[in-house]
Write a protein that binds this DNA or RNA. Structure first.
Lengths: 168, 168
DNA sequence: TATTGTTATACTCTATAACTATA
DNA sequence: TATAGTTATAGAGTATAACAATA
């Protein structure tokens, strides 16, 4: 009992574990956005599909799946639900007919706008422990980390779909 | 076709979506740590249980579950596996015999030390897009965000278990 | 041959509820 | 009564493999 009490515990502390911090922050995000996106099929992921589909740039099905870390087979079911809810429409990519583009319907754009306006406050709450300057700095650093992880931002060229799509 | 092209798309961009950034960074963490923790039952979560169990402070089963966002029923199965792998031991909390403390075996401490030393490099890779100063600033901000999310650091007092536990 | 998307199957993970024991 | 833990069941979510169409 006269040995030194905790010599083997160099730094085994969760407050020094970036995985714990990322996981805790991400769970808090899912928790606080849950109420806002619960009427979107797929919840938070369905919302993110809408965000990507709303981009006039590339929104191919496989690109979205890769970007969001969703398995392609899961993406099929998710898009089935979103299409059934009249939020998106699939159509063949004219440049590569194996591929299908994901386009938002008018209802999808309206839903996206509504949810996005609400999520501004959610983000403010999530970063409530930081000052405005710190929050801006944190976000800038976080985006650089995320962009540098390998699952990068869309980089493959694919045919643009800029036209407004009428709700079928 | 003479209407202004994209007036409804104010800022619908994933690079401005903190949920996407958190999710992408977290998935990258899980991916890059996967190889290092694959021989621990439960993978990344099993590792984090070891981290909390190694703390001489409170390591009650329910506290760990709350801290890590794990359901208490899932925690039972996870600890069953960790105990079967001879990494942890459960014992009744002398102060509240409903509760059980999670203690690391010698093998558990050895495993934890090995993995932690490897994860230093993983963290370095994960934050590879940042300079050393930026990485330090990012971590400090991230921990403040995580600590301010409600699922806080252990705050409830529970009896301390400082003694070294012999491997049974 | 490789890739995109779909489908069916099986598997894993998670949530719900009921139960024991302690407080 | 309320809480910590366990167990069993059912459900949601996910991965695997096979297939069709296209490149």
């Amino acid at each position: 009992m006269s040995e030194r009490p905790t010599p083997t515990l160099e730094r085994t502390d969760l407050t020094n574990d970036i995985g714990w911090a990322l996981g805790t922050a991400f769970r808090a995000y899912l928790r606080s956005t849950g109420a806002e996106v619960q009427d979107i099929p797929g919840g938070p992921r369905g919302y993110q599909v809408l965000v990507m589909g709303s981009s006039p740039a590339c929104s191919n099905q496989s690109t979205i799946a890769n970007e969001l870390g969703i398995d392609r087979t899961v993406m099929t079911y998710l898009l089935d639900d979103l299409e059934r809810a009249d939020l998106v429409v699939r159509r063949p990519d004219p440049a590569d007919r194996r591929s299908r583009q994901v386009l938002l319907t008018d209802a999808g754009r309206a839903k996206l706008a509504t949810v996005q306006s609400r999520l501004i406050q959610v983000e403010r709450d999530l970063l409530g422990a930081l000052t405005d300057d710190e929050a801006a700095a944190f976000k800038a650093l976080l985006y650089r980390v995320a962009a540098g992880t390998g699952s990068d931002l869309p980089k493959n060229a694919c045919s643009v779909a800029e036209e407004v799509l009428p709700t079928p």
